Lab assay of single mutants.
Amino acid sequence: AEKTGIVNVSSSLNAREGASTSSKVIGSLSGNTKVTIVGEEGAFYKIEYKGSHGYVAKEYIKDIKDE
């Protein structure tokens, strides 16, 4: 099942092309942005936001229960 997560940073969080800190940054998400978690790979979540996919470090995403 898809989960919703909240970007848990004070400034912004980089979204990357792949599940690695050396992957190209494809965008950034500001704190408290809601994202859909579609998968996980190592220390990263694969997320969907406004129709695009990217990878973000798990430690900066807070899971919330689907309402």
Rank of each mutant, 00 (worst) to 15 (best):
Ile6Asp: 02
Glu48Phe: 10
Ala15Thr: 09
Ile47Lys: 01
Ile6Thr: 08
Lys62Thr: 14
Glu2Val: 15
Tyr60Ala: 08
Asp66Ile: 14
Ala15Asp: 02
Tyr55Ser: 00
Glu59Phe: 06
Thr4Pro: 03
Tyr45Gly: 05
Thr21Ser: 13
Gly27Gln: 04
Ser23Lys: 03
Lys24Gln: 07
Asp66Tyr: 15
Lys46Ile: 15
Ser12Asn: 09
Gly54Glu: 01
Thr21Arg: 11
Tyr45Asp: 05
Ala1Thr: 13
Gly51Arg: 03
Phe44His: 02
Thr4Ser: 10
Leu29Trp: 02
Leu13Val: 15
Arg16Ile: 04
Val56Asp: 01
Asp66Pro: 12
Glu67Met: 13
Leu13Gly: 04
Val7Ile: 10
Asn8Glu: 06
Gly54Ala: 15
Tyr60Glu: 06
Ser12Trp: 11
Ile37Trp: 01
Phe44Met: 03
Ser23Gln: 02
Tyr55Arg: 00
Ala1Ile: 13
Val25Phe: 05
Tyr60His: 10
Leu29Glu: 00
His53Ala: 06
Tyr60Asn: 06
Ser10His: 11
Glu41Ile: 08
Ser52Gln: 12
Asn32Leu: 09
Gly39Phe: 03
Gly31Ile: 10
Val35Gln: 00
Ile61Ala: 01
Val38Cys: 11
Ala57Ile: 09
Thr36Tyr: 13
Asp66Thr: 12
Ile37Asp: 00
Thr21Glu: 14
Asp63Ile: 15
Tyr60Gly: 08
Asn14Trp: 12
Val38Ala: 03
Ser22Cys: 13
Gly5Lys: 04
Tyr45Met: 03
Ile26Asp: 01
Ser20Met: 06
Gly51Pro: 01
Lys34His: 08
Glu17Gln: 09
Ala15Arg: 03
Ala43Thr: 08
Val35Met: 01
Asn8Trp: 09
Tyr49Lys: 00
Gly51Tyr: 03
Ile61Cys: 03
Glu17Val: 08
Asp66Ala: 11
Glu41Val: 10
Gly31Gln: 11
Val35Ala: 01
Val25Lys: 05
Gly39Pro: 00
Ala57Asn: 10
Ala19Ile: 08
Lys3Met: 10
Thr4His: 10
Lys34Pro: 06
Ile26Tyr: 02
Lys34Met: 11
Ile64Leu: 09
Ile26Val: 07
Thr4Ala: 06
Ser11Met: 10
Gly18Leu: 12
Gly31Asp: 11
Lys46Arg: 08
Lys46Met: 10
Tyr45Asn: 04
Ile61Glu: 00
Thr4Tyr: 13
Thr33Leu: 07
Phe44Gln: 01
Thr4Val: 11
Val56Ser: 00
Lys65Val: 13
Glu40Gly: 02
Gly42Val: 01
Lys46Asp: 05
Glu48Trp: 11
Val25Asp: 02
Tyr49Ile: 08
Gly27His: 04
Asn14Gly: 07
Ala43Val: 07
Asn32Phe: 11
Lys34Leu: 11
Glu17Pro: 04
Ile47Trp: 00
Ser11Glu: 11
Arg16Ser: 06
Asn14Gln: 14
Val9Met: 07
Ser23Gly: 05
Gly39Ala: 07
Lys58Phe: 04
Lys46Glu: 09
Lys58Pro: 02
Gly27Ser: 03
Ala19Lys: 05
Ser12Pro: 08
Lys46Ser: 02
Ala19Met: 05
Glu67Asn: 12
